[in-house]
């Protein structure tokens, strides 16, 4: 992937909303957490929104790192391993109950499952199928608008 900064941000927000939203809805009932459905759904979507908002900051960092690469690209593997720093930060905020709108602290196993599944789904979608409906996306550095 060879994104521009605005392309990265647009792609992240759009994919988290579309793919992340659907995957979250599907995975929420299966998470290992003892909570009523309303609190469960509220928690997972707050976490998803937090990942999106924090992501804009992460994208700025990745953009700076990309400038040191001659190809100005972002290899497939980088898109996968960034799950670690992003997961640690989002996990710290979610399990500590530090995110606004969260009914309470999210148990670590529930967060880990939710975050990993959403991440993998978005990563897989961005590395291929997204090009089918959005034929201009890859030539515009990941911009959808």
């Amino acid at each position: 992937m060879v994104p521009t900064l605005f392309g990265r941000i647009q792609t992240r927000l759009f994919m988290l909303a579309l793919v992340g939203g659907v995957v979250t809805a599907a995975v929420a009932p299966l998470l290992p957490v003892d909570a009523p459905a309303a609190a469960r759904y509220q928690s997972v979507y707050v976490v998803l929104a937090a990942v999106a908002v924090l992501g804009v900051g992460w994208e700025l960092i990745y953009h700076v790192l990309m400038q040191w690469r001659w190809e100005k690209d972002w290899p497939t593997l980088f898109g996968l391993v960034t799950i670690v720093p992003e997961g640690v930060l989002a996990g710290f905020l979610a399990t500590g109950g530090h995110l606004p709108g969260l009914p309470g602290p999210v148990p670590l196993p529930a967060f880990a499952v939710h975050f990993t599944v959403v991440w993998l789904a978005v990563w897989l979608f961005v590395n291929g199928p997204v090009r089918v409906p959005f034929i201009r996306w890859r030539f515009r550095g990941g911009r959808l608008l």
């Binding site: 060879v2 400038q67 190809e71 100005k72 690209d73 030539f139 515009r140 550095g141």
Partner: peptide, 29 residues
């Protein structure tokens, strides 16, 4: 300093004919 192409033993190295970002990344933009 931040845009340096790899070279060694006489050759200049690059994955493809152009830096990858030429086909849709920041160089294209």
């Amino acid at each position: 300093l931040w845009a340096r192409r790899r070279g060694k033993d006489g050759f200049a190295y690059q994955g493809f004919n152009y830096p990858k970002s030429v086909w849709g990344g920041q160089l294209k933009a």
